[in-house]
Simulated assay, not measured.
Amino acid sequence: MRISFSVARRRSHKRLFREVKGSYGGRKNLLRLVKETVVRNRVFAYRDRRNRKREFRALWIIRIKAAAEMRGLSYSRFIYGLSLAEIKLNRKTLSEMAIHSPEVFDEVTTLVREGLKKAGQAV
Rank of each mutant, 00 (worst) to 15 (best):
M70F: 00
S101Y: 12
A45W: 01
S6R: 15
A67D: 01
Y80I: 06
R49A: 07
Y24A: 09
R9P: 02
I79D: 02
K117N: 12
N90H: 09
G22V: 07
K53Y: 04
N29T: 08
T37G: 02
F56H: 09
L30P: 00
R11N: 12
V108R: 04
I64F: 06
G115T: 10
F56L: 14
R10Q: 13
Y24M: 04
S83T: 05
D106A: 11
V43S: 06
F78E: 02
R47N: 10
K28L: 00
R57L: 15
E36G: 06
I61F: 02
V112G: 12
L111G: 03
A58T: 08
S23V: 01
M1R: 13
V108K: 10
H13C: 10
D48H: 06
T37E: 15
A98K: 05
R71V: 09
F56Y: 13
M1F: 13
F78C: 03
Y80H: 11
V123F: 07
Y80S: 07
W60R: 08
R49Q: 08
F17L: 15
S6F: 12
Q121I: 15
R49G: 14
S76W: 02
M70K: 14
L94M: 04
R18W: 07
N90S: 04
V43P: 03
S23P: 00
L84E: 05
L111P: 00
R18C: 11
V39T: 14
I79Y: 02
V104T: 11
L59E: 15
E96I: 02
R49F: 03
G72Y: 07
A119P: 09
F5P: 05
L111C: 05
S4W: 03
K88P: 00
R15I: 08
R57H: 14
E107D: 05
V104W: 05
I79M: 12
R113N: 07
Q121G: 01
R40Q: 14
L59T: 05
M97R: 08
R10L: 10
R42Q: 15
G115W: 14
L73T: 05
K28W: 00
V43N: 09
A98S: 14
I64Y: 11
Y80A: 07
S74H: 10
K65Q: 13
A8I: 09
A67I: 03
L84I: 01
R18V: 02
S6H: 11
G22H: 11
A122D: 11
R49V: 00
E19G: 04
F17G: 09
N29M: 07
S4M: 04
E86Y: 02
K118V: 04
D106W: 07
R50M: 06
L30Q: 14
N41M: 14
R15F: 14
D106K: 08
K65R: 15
P102M: 12
R10F: 06
Y24C: 02
L31T: 05
T93K: 13
E19V: 04
E86T: 01
F5K: 10
V112E: 04
S6Y: 12
I62P: 00
F5E: 07
T110S: 09
N90Q: 07
F5D: 08
M97Y: 03
A66W: 08
K53A: 15
F56P: 00
V7H: 11
L30F: 08
M1Q: 13
L89E: 04
L116T: 07
G81C: 05
